[in-house]
Nucleic acid binder design. Sequence first.
DNA 1: CGACGTGTTGATTCCTGTCAATACTCGTGG
DNA 2: CCACGAGTATTGACAGGAATCAACACGTCG
Lengths: 241, 241
Amino acid sequence: MTLELSFSKNCDTCPIRHRAVCATCDKQEMETLESIKYYQTYEAGRTIMWSGDRMEFVASIVSGTATIEHLTEDGRKQTVGLMLPSDFIGRPGREEAVYDVTAVTDVTLCCFRRKQFEHLVQNTPHIAQRMLEMALDELDAARDWMFLLGRKTAREKIASFLMLIARRTTASDLDTATELGIDLPLTRDAMSDYLGLTLETVSRQFSKLKAEGIIQLQGKRRVIIPDLDRLRAEAGDAGQH
Amino acid sequence: MTLELSFSKNCDTCPIRHRAVCATCDKQEMETLESIKYYQTYEAGRTIMWSGDRMEFVASIVSGTATIEHLTEDGRKQTVGLMLPSDFIGRPGREEAVYDVTAVTDVTLCCFRRKQFEHLVQNTPHIAQRMLEMALDELDAARDWMFLLGRKTAREKIASFLMLIARRTTASDLDTATELGIDLPLTRDAMSDYLGLTLETVSRQFSKLKAEGIIQLQGKRRVIIPDLDRLRAEAGDAGQH
DNA sequence: CGACGTGTTGATTCCTGTCAATACTCGTGG
DNA sequence: CCACGAGTATTGACAGGAATCAACACGTCG
């Protein structure tokens, strides 16, 4: 089954035009990109890239959510990256993927054949610099996550995750907003893999936060945050961000 | 007190020349770098960069070990990066440091004033590309560490750490070597911050591994690994790396 | 309706954290 | 020279938070 593309294939009206790897490209560079890009869609649950497989393409996420996961033979799994629209998948200069990438919702990618893209990186300073910028941003995000994984309690992990989703999927300014509703892109199980917990612990913490009125649940996936500051205080960052 | 520089200030004989950010620079680019670089040394325990402070320079580690750490007001600390010779400190394009960087042994840096270096990144493709390569390598390392922090047991964390130090500080080929001796650059306390443990747990696991003959200790800092494969099996990577 | 995927809740275990006492190493100074 | 103290490390007792094992609830789809 093929998903219909619900967006224009034109870069000018692309929803991630100003945030993705192409953000700082000029008119001429955009024409080059436009000529070699192609779109690809994946249904929720599908694997986009297998660890160990040859990487044929790199891509920007146009819509949907994907996870980068690291798993071992004994069945342990850790999600090491949450990829939302405008995030970049794949690594130029590397032949084989080292992590699995999975679509957790329906995902649309703007793809470039890897070899072609590597060529671009070498010849288009704007792209090389944007790649560097994005890599360094991801590195910072990874380091913040290392703190979460190494030092936060289960409760703080959940609160932090909710703040992250609020920050990344909401247009509103989180500093001024008070009440807020968000849709979780992940199942309890996928959250547990991201947070370094079990799904039971995730579920319990959601129940506790709900019982204390810090969050409200509408179904399993929609979360209402009546007081953002109260949730922020539970995230264990002690006045940061 | 000032530390004496125990190395030549000439790039040609620099111990990290072929691995650092300058690895792929040509003769002319090296001359530019050579003209703006300056060396700086820090005693063990000194802070190289404070979170929140303005970043005046970026630098390559020439010798010694430094840690990047994230700490909260309530006293929790997580080391989010272990920096060894050839690693790069600082982020071009950012005004303020977001992490503390601490010298855990005496450290010598090859520094570049940040503004100058940013200019270089924009005008020297070899440097921009090398920066990208190193950033992506660090991102991979950070992701592997996320797995360690989120999913490994205390015992596996220690074994993994010892393998990491063996890999990064030994000239020998770890695939063929069997017995190996390494010097730990970190105290038990610093290791606990890196591994997301307490220092007591680190100490206990060392004692256990020692009692089982998987490692031998000479003093507190020197570790002999009689059988690398045996230690590798304890690292919990199940046939990876 | 029943099966399956997903989520919740309970009982129990156990690994690691916490609190505490003690040892070891290395300088310093009386 | 030895006592002393600071920093570092080891070990023990105990507590607690999250994992594990298990039962059950909810919603959807065939």
